[in-house]
Design a protein around this nucleic acid. Structure first.
Lengths: 214, 214
DNA sequence: TAAATATCGGTATAAAATTATCGATATAAA
DNA sequence: TTTATATCGATAATTTTATACCGATATTTA
């Protein structure tokens, strides 16, 4: 067992605490309490306090936490302070959107290049990032020691791309294709499942309609 | 209490069952068992069986479920068979990616139009969908009875957009901006939190590095 | 026809996550 | 200085979620 194995739920909440903390106007918010965060985010204060206890030991009774320190603690815990290089496979609309999203740097993610099969886009750039042909994946990953791959190709092509990435030494995959990927045990896959989010939204909607007759 | 109030976790897993079922080659997969799904997706078979019991009553010992029927049952449960109209606010890269994603129709979501403040994009189209100025939101939502709004604007603008949507009669919001939205009690917000996914990925990565010394 | 097997569906148990409670402590007010 | 208050951190209780177990049943094999 890990001494500090943190729960996945907590991990999922930490970024929202972070974005809330960063949204606070400076000056009159030197300190922030778990109660305050909980109220703003619609959560239970004990839950927030327990989550924060995983990443920081600096809470003080009556006062709470020093806002700036807490932000640093969360960022450091989430690894936002050391930048990870990544490549993206699939330079379509979604891939392009991710490439052009400046915000990833704040999360410690640096997309260095993209790959695509389409000859019309290969050779072009998006936001200063080159789009390369697929057969260059292995070379680039090995020479730059890339460990993170992002998949934004259509579902039917995802497994093939995944296999290529594994073959190229990638061992963390962020998969935006709506497919379950088969990988060796030591490879991490984080599924970005928009269909799942949509399912939750639809279900709530259906329930609300049934209950309130909207 | 709801008689059939389904757990959120189950709801999140249903779409992955669906995509697995659809990926099966027809012909030699007339039937499918919970065990089979569980093995393919790396889950526990009892969990899958219980999840499926929420949406279908047609499981048969020894055989399992009729694949086609199960697909229909899940789709129907998730509301994928009655198309919901939606609008999108923010026609930037991410907004454009969502607009051009044909797959949403499969999930019962139909994006009818987009809105943006940028005069250069207002009046243009993406994938046959018009981009309109912000002050037209209310008119359009009311005349077409739109109930779902998708927010893909920068974080700092999200709350304002959210308020406009609520004001326009929207009551389910899919928020891609990394901010917590304040809404009245009867409005549903589904947060699409890429930072949260990334946090899980980074944490796993950091743990693997520490353990295996990659 | 009888035995073996895979699977469902229900119940029971275990594990995990959330929420409540309480004593301790730091600050502010009386 | 004393009292009141807000908050933390720890422990306990509750709720939710996941897993194990077992009898029933449909199919296949002997």
């Amino acid at each position: 067992m890990n001494p500090k194995s943190i729960s996945k739920q907590t991990l999922l909440r930490l970024p929202s605490y972070l974005s809330y903390l960063k949204s606070l106007p400076e000056g009159d918010n030197e300190h922030v309490s778990a109660t305050m965060i909980a109220t703003a985010l619609g959560l239970n204060d004990v839950q927030v306090r327990k989550d924060l206890a995983c990443v920081s030991k600096k809470g003080r009774p009556k006062l709470g936490y020093v806002t700036g320190d807490l932000i640093k603690d969360i960022e450091s815990f989430l690894g936002y302070d050391d930048l990870n290089d990544a490549i993206i496979v699939g330079a379509g609309r979604l891939g392009g959107a991710l490439m052009s999203y400046e915000g990833f740097k704040e999360y410690g993610l640096n997309i260095v290049a993209a790959f695509d099969t389409d000859e019309r886009v290969v050779g072009t750039e998006i936001c200063g990032k080159k789009i390369l042909p697929m057969d260059k994946i292995k070379d680039l990953c090995e020479s730059l020691k890339i460990r993170i791959g992002i998949i934004t190709v259509p579902a039917h092509a995802a497994q093939k791309v995944c296999d290529m990435l594994v073959e190229s030494g990638i061992y963390a995959i962020w998969n935006f294709a709506p497919t379950h990927l088969k990988v060796p045990d030591n490879i991490l896959v984080q599924q970005e499942n928009m269909a799942a989010s949509l399912a939750v939204l639809s279900a709530h909607l259906a329930e609300a309609i049934k209950k309130n007759g909207f």
